[in-house]
């Protein structure tokens, strides 16, 4: 992966000026490349990594395994597209192994997710079965630890 993308994935707020210094590029070149990534859709957006547990919102997230009958034309894509359109669905992945699609679904509470599974998801044509797992606690997300690391014990000055 381009080093610029690597740095933006780690911190999307890094300024073009700093990126330019780190990568030995001109500021204009950095801006041009970012604009190009945005235009071609390689960069799809910028989001904050939020520790929702800390907000005590009481929202729940479920990981749902879905078995699907692929369609003659379109394979898994048409069912996956259909599922992806629900706003409560945060992520959808096609998987190898014992099930086909893996969903991350969030809702106000357990009831709301349960309703989504039984009334919306399970009734979609092509969906054979679902297995829903509720998340209890987030330790690490998007490569970021949710608990603050302990302070460094390095000496302040060393040879």
């Amino acid at each position: 992966m381009d080093e610029l993308l690597h740095l933006l994935k780690r911190n999307a707020l890094e300024t073009p000026e700093n990126l330019a210094k780190m990568l030995n590029l001109s500021v204009d070149e950095v801006r041009r490349r970012i604009a190009n990534y945005e235009k071609t859709g390689i960069i799809r957006g910028y989001q904050a990594v939020v520790n929702e547990d800390q907000l005590s919102l009481g929202r729940v997230t479920a990981v749902i395994e879905v078995k699907v009958t692929p369609e003659r034309e379109g394979g898994f894509n048409s069912v996956a597209d259909r599922i992806s359109k629900f706003p409560e669905v945060e992520s959808v992945y096609l998987m190898s192994g014992a099930f086909d699609l893996l969903l991350f679904v969030s809702g106000r509470d357990l009831k709301e997710v349960a309703f989504f599974v039984s009334e919306k998801l399970a009734t979609i044509r092509g969906v054979i079965s679902t297995a829903t797992h509720f998340m209890l606690k987030t330790y690490k997300a998007n490569g970021v630890l949710m608990e603050s690391a302990e302070g460094s014990e390095r000496l302040k000055v060393s040879p």
Partner: peptide, 26 residues
């Protein structure tokens, strides 16, 4: 006495210092 030690003694009495004086990986 090592010049670094002298300096370490001063720095270690201060709070909220950004140290570029550390010769080991972070």
């Amino acid at each position: 006495r090592s010049g670094i030690r002298d300096f370490f003694d001063i720095v270690s009495t201060m709070k909220d210092v950004i140290s570029l004086g550390i010769g080991e990986p972070d």
